[in-house]
Design a binder for these strands. Structure first.
Lengths: 227, 227
DNA sequence: CGATTGCTTGATACCTCTCAACCCAGGTGG
DNA sequence: CCACCTGGGTTGAGAGGTATCAAGCAATCG
C-alpha cells in the first residue's frame, strides 16, 4: 500500500488472495492458466466495451478506470480500481464496459477459460472471484447514490475522503487522475470540479499544492459536508 | 411473462434456473435448505441496510426495489428487481443496501448458510448465483451512466423503453411504481418526472392514460432521445 | 362528504453547464 | 536562453435545466 491512490479503491489484500498465488507455491496445473504480468502506460486501453471478454485482469499497482461512452462523446467513469481489484469478469461473450490505465499500472491477466476451469477446481479461488464482484457491486451502488442525490461539493468531499483513506496518511493525497477523470467519475464538468476544489480551499477545508497534490485540512468538517 | 414490469428487469429465465428447482425434482438434501415462499405487500420492507445478511431472496413475481437513504432523508433507488432476480447476496455480515416491495410481490427466501453449503456442492447453482450478481453489476454500471451523464428526458425515455421491453407488447406499459420511486431511481424530483412525462406526451411520443398506464407511441423517436 | 394521498402545473431560485478568456508548467526549437 | 507553443487547470459571465415552494386537481378512503 502506501500508495497514494484513487477513491473507493479497495485494500490490497495481498496476503489472503488466491489469485496472487496461482502459479506460485502449491499450484500444479496447466502453466498457461497462470497469470501473465503486464504493464500499461497512463491512458492506454486495457479492453474495450464490445470486445471478446476472453481475459480477466487483476490490478497489481497503479489505478485502472472502467468507463463507458455515450454516442455523442459524453464519457462516464464507473470506477477507479486500485491494487487487488479484479476486472473483466463478464456474464456474456463480450465486455460490457471499457477499461484503461488511469495511471501507469501493472496488472496480471488470466485467460478466461483457464480461470474458469481453475475456479471449478478451486473453491477458494471461486470465493475470491465472487467476493470481488460483490465488492465491485457494493461500490457501484454506493457511488450511484452520490451520482443521483449529491451536490458537487458533497461529491468531491466524499471523493477526497475516499482517496485519503487509502493514501499513506496525514491527509496528504497525490491524485493519480486528471480533472477530467474526476469530473467524468462524479458526473460533473471539469470546470465545476475545478471551482469546487477552489471552493473547498477558500473554506480552508483543503489545501492545494498544484493540481494533483491535495491536503485535507479539516477532516471533521469535510465529513460533515456529506451528512 | 406478460407481466407489465419495471425497467431493466431481467428476463424470467424460469427454465434454466437451478434456484427454482431447489426443493423440487431431483433435490435430496436438507429440507431447511430449500427456499421458502414469501409474500410482501407494496412498500413492505424485505431487509434493511445494516441488518444481518442471513437470507438471500429470489424474486418470483412483482417488483422489488433496492435503495439507500442519506442522513437527511434523501433516498436513492439503486434498482428495480423483477422475476428471476436474486438479491441479498453480500460479502460481509450485513446488508449493504435495503430492499422493499415496490409492488405486491412474491419471493423465495433462502438461508444464507444453507445456500452457501448447497452452492459448494452444486456447480450449476454456483454459476447461477455468480451470473446473477454479474448481471446486477452490469445493470448498476449502465444505470450509473444515466445518472451521471443524461438529462431528465433522456433518463425517462430510457426508463420507459426499458419497461416496454419487458411488458406484454404493443408499447403498452403498466408502471408498477410511483412517481416518487421513479424520481428516486432516476435521480430527479417528482415534479421533474411529472413534467417530463407531460413533455413526452406533448411531443406525441407517449400517451398517458392515468399516471400508471403509459403507451409508447413512437419508439423510434423515443430511442433517438438517448442517442 | 371532507380528508387524504398521489399527481400535475406554475413561478421562481439556484446550481451546474457552456462558452470564453486566461494562467501556468513543460517541451521545443531557434 | 528565450520565444513560442501546447495541454491541463483556473476563473468569469451568462444560459439553461432542475429543484424548490406553492397551489390546484383527481381518485381513494374513512
Amino acid at each position: 500500500m502506501g500508495n497514494p491512490t484513487a477513491a473507493t479503491v479497495e485494500p490490497a489484500e495481498t496476503s489472503e488472495n488466491p489469485l496472487l498465488r496461482i502459479g506460485g507455491n502449491g499450484y500444479r496445473g496447466d502453466l498457461r492458466a497462470t497469470g501473465r504480468a503486464r504493464h500499461f502506460l497512463r491512458d492506454r486501453e486495457i479492453y474495450s466495451e464490445g470486445d471478446d471478454a476472453d481475459t480477466v485482469f487483476k490490478v497489481e499497482s497503479g489505478v485502472v478506470r472502467t468507463y463507458k461512452f455515450l454516442r455523442d462523446g459524453r464519457r462516464h467513469i464507473n470506477a477507479f480500481h486500485g491494487p487487488g481489484s479484479v476486472i473483466g469478469l463478464e456474464v456474456g461473450k463480450v465486455y460490457g464496459i471499457s477499461a484503461a490505465a488511469a495511471s501507469d499500472c501493472a496488472v496480471i491477466s488470466y485467460g478466461r477459460r483457464n480461470l474458469e476451469t481453475l475456479a471449478s477446481q478451486n473453491d477458494q479461488l471461486q470465493l475470491q472471484l465472487f467476493s470481488s464482484v460483490l465488492r465491485n457491486l457494493a461500490r457501484a451502488q454506493e457511488h450511484s447514490v452520490s451520482l443521483g442525490r449529491r451536490s458537487a461539493v458533497e461529491k468531491l468531499a466524499l471523493f477526497l475522503m475516499g482517496c485519503g483513506e487509502h493514501s499513506a496518511g496525514g491527509g496528504d493525497i497525490l491524485l493519480e487522475m486528471s480533472r477530467k477523470d474526476i469530473a467524468d467519475y462524479l458526473g460533473l464538468t471539469i470546470e465545476t470540479v475545478s471551482r469546487t476544489f477552489s471552493d473547498l480551499e477558500d473554506r480552508a477545508l483543503i489545501e492545494l499544492h498544484g493540481a494533483r497534490h491535495v491536503r485535507l485540512m479539516d477532516i471533521t468538517r469535510l465529513r460533515d459536508l456529506f451528512a
